[in-house]
């Protein structure tokens, strides 16, 4: 499914920065996005836009929140990894995207561990898989966020949902 944006890649990256800064009160380090959002060319008109490192985190993993680029006030983290296809100087397309929210909690030894995580995918032409997809590595006590899965949901909508569904409030 084609999904085009009327932005240059730089404008798109600036939009991500602005979106995160609009939610600055929920983060301890929203200012980090200015320097930690990396834009790199892969050649063949593909550009990587990335906030935080490419890591695969799952429930139970130990993490150090301070090592991550974007940390919510409750210690949870948000990461973005996208491949952008440049169409023209003022048009680009989100080819592949994974935006991950990692909810953390402190265990009995004082370490931060992943309580649950969800990622929101955008992929193309994967057999038996929707192009847009939300998946939880799940804690059954968390209500499933009310979330569109038949259309592209951008970062702002994801942040809105995280706040709206009170994912930043510890329930234990």
């Amino acid at each position: 499914m084609s999904f085009e944006l009327d932005y240059s890649v730089h404008e798109y990256a600036d939009k991500i920065r602005k979106t995160i800064q609009d939610y600055y009160k929920h983060f301890i380090n929203a200012w980090n996005v200015g320097t930690h959002l990396k834009v790199r060319s892969l050649g063949n008109n593909f550009v990587s836009v990335k906030l935080d490192t490419h890591q695969i985190l799952k429930a139970g993993d130990k993490i150090v929140p301070s090592e991550h680029a974007l940390v919510f006030k409750d210690g949870s983290i948000l990461s973005i990894a996208q491949m952008i296809e440049v169409i023209s100087s003022k048009k680009c397309r989100i080819h592949t995207s994974v935006i991950t929210f990692v909810k953390t909690k402190t265990n009995h030894t004082g370490d931060s561990i992943v309580e649950y995580a969800f990622h929101y995918d955008k992929v193309n032409n994967v057999p038996n898989h929707p192009d847009f997809h939300l998946q939880f590595d799940y804690n059954q006590k968390i209500n499933t966020p009310r979330f569109e899965i038949h259309k592209y949901v951008d970062l702002e909508e994801i942040l809105k949902m995280i706040v709206r569904d009170q994912l930043l409030i510890n329930i234990d």
Binding site: K58, T100, H119, D121
Partner: peptide
């Protein structure tokens, strides 16, 4: 639990 997008990237 895995991400198809993560694999592609």
């Amino acid at each position: 639990n895995f991400s198809h997008a993560q694999i592609k990237i």
